[in-house]
Nucleic acid binder design. Structure first.
Lengths: 194, 194
DNA sequence: CCGTTGTAAGTGAACGTTCACTCACATTAT
DNA sequence: ATAATGTGAGTGAACGTTCACTTACAACGG
C-alpha cells in the first residue's frame, strides 16, 4: 500500500529529523545527504526534486493521521471523548515528532511552491474540519453548547493548538507540550460544555 | 521622535508593500530596489543590511501598536470594551496592512537570524500579555469568568486571531477579515462572559 | 560671480557563497 | 553482463553585499 521504496523512506525520515534538529532552512540536499551518509547526487536517484521529498513528508503524515483518525471515529465514545482523544493525540504526535509541526505550521516557507502550499493548506483545513464535525455531532446531541457555531469553536481550538506548538518550537521545547495540551483541553472542556 | 530618515521610511514602506504583494521570499534587495525605482547598491546608502530593513518594519509596527494601545488602556471603559477594542483594532490593522501579518506571523523564516527571531517572538508574547492583562482585570471585576485562567483565555484568543489572519493571507485575502473578526469577537464575548 | 572642494546619493559590475540539480564515471548487486 | 545505485566534480542561478565611479548640489574662498 505504501508508495515509497525503502530508500525513499530512509530519506524522508532523515529529512524529518533534520528539520526537527536544525529547522526547515537547514533542510538542504547537501545536509540531507550528509545525514544519510551519502552524497547529494545520490538523493536524486530516489527523488526527482527536493519538493518531492517535502511532499513525501506530508504524505506520510497524512497516511498516519488518517489511520489514527479512522480508529478514533469508529470508537463508540461520546463526542467530547472523541474531541479529547483527538487533541491529546495531536499533542502526543507533535511531542514525539517536532518536525511534523515544523513542516505543517510553516505555510510561509512553501508559498512559492504551489503544490506544497496547497498540501499544507489542505492539511490545516482538514484538521479543522475534523474537529468541526465532531463538534457538530456533539451539538446535535446537546453535549456541546449550541450558542456558538461549530466552525467558530473549531477555529478557537485549532488556533490555540497551533499557537502552543509554535511557541514550544520557538522556545526550543522549553516546556512539556503534553502538559500544556492537558491544560488546554481542560479549558476547552469548560468552554464547550458551558 | 522618529529614528528613521525620510528615505529609510520610503524603503521600509516599499518593503512592506513588496511583502504584502509577493510574500517574504520575494523580498530581496534587488526586488526592493526595483520597486523604489533605484538600484540594489543604493539601498545600502540607507541601511547597513537587509536585516536592518526587516527590523525597521517591526520597529515601525511596535511604535504604531504602542500608540494605539496607550490610548486604549487610558480609556475609561470596561475590560470587555477594551478587549473588543483591542481585537477589532488588530483586525483593522492587519486588514489595512497585510504585510505586517506576513512579517509578524512568519517566525519560521527568521529562525536563522537571532535578532529578528527574538523581536518577532517578543511581539507575539507582548500581544498575548496585553490581552492577558485586560482579562485579569476583567476577572477581578467579575466581568469575565474566573474558572478559566487568564493566560488560557489569552492563548485561545491570540491563537484564533493568528489562525484567521493566516488563512486570510494564504487564500489571498479571499474573505473580509474584519467581518470574520466581528464573528470571532461575538464568540469570544459569549465565552468569556459565560 | 567663479572655480574649488565636500558630501550625500545613485549606478551597475563584481564578488563570494549557497543552493538545487546534472552528468560522466565507478561500484555493487543480481 | 546488465541494471541499479553511489560518487563528486561541475553548472548556473540567486542572493546579500561591496566597490569604484558618477552625478547633483551645497558651501565657501577669491
Amino acid at each position: 500500500m505504501n508508495t515509497f521504496t525503502e530508500k525513499q523512506l530512509n530519506i524522508i525520515n532523515a529529512a524529518i529529523e533534520l528539520i526537527a534538529e536544525k529547522g526547515i532552512q537547514q533542510m538542504t540536499i547537501k545536509n540531507l545527504s550528509k545525514k544519510i551518509g551519502t552524497v547529494d547526487g545520490a538523493i536524486y536517484r530516489h527523488f526527482d526534486s527536493k519538493i518531492e521529498i517535502l511532499l513525501g513528508i506530508l504524505k506520510l503524515f497524512r497516511q498516519n493521521k488518517d489511520g489514527t483518525l479512522q480508529s478514533l471515529i469508529a470508537q463508540e465514545s461520546s463526542s467530547l471523548q472523541k474531541l479529547e482523544g483527538l487533541l491529546t493525540g495531536r499533542f502526543r504526535k507533535f511531542s514525539a515528532n517536532p518536525a511534523i509541526a515544523a513542516v505543517i505550521f510553516s505555510e510561509e516557507i512553501f508559498q512559492n511552491e504551489k503544490s506544497l502550499a496547497d498540501e499544507v493548506f489542505k492539511i490545516m483545513q482538514d484538521s479543522q474540519n475534523t474537529i468541526e464535525t465532531i463538534i457538530l455531532k456533539g451539538q446535535s446531541e446537546n453535549q456541546i453548547r449550541n450558542d456558538i457555531s461549530a466552525d467558530q469553536l473549531a477555529l478557537l481550538i485549532t488556533g490555540a493548538l497551533r499557537l502552543i506548538v509554535t511557541k514550544w518550537r520557538l522556545t526550543e521545547f522549553s516546556f512539556d507540550l503534553q502538559t500544556e495540551g492537558q491544560k488546554l483541553w481542560k479549558s476547552i472542556y469548560k468552554i464547550v460544555t458551558n
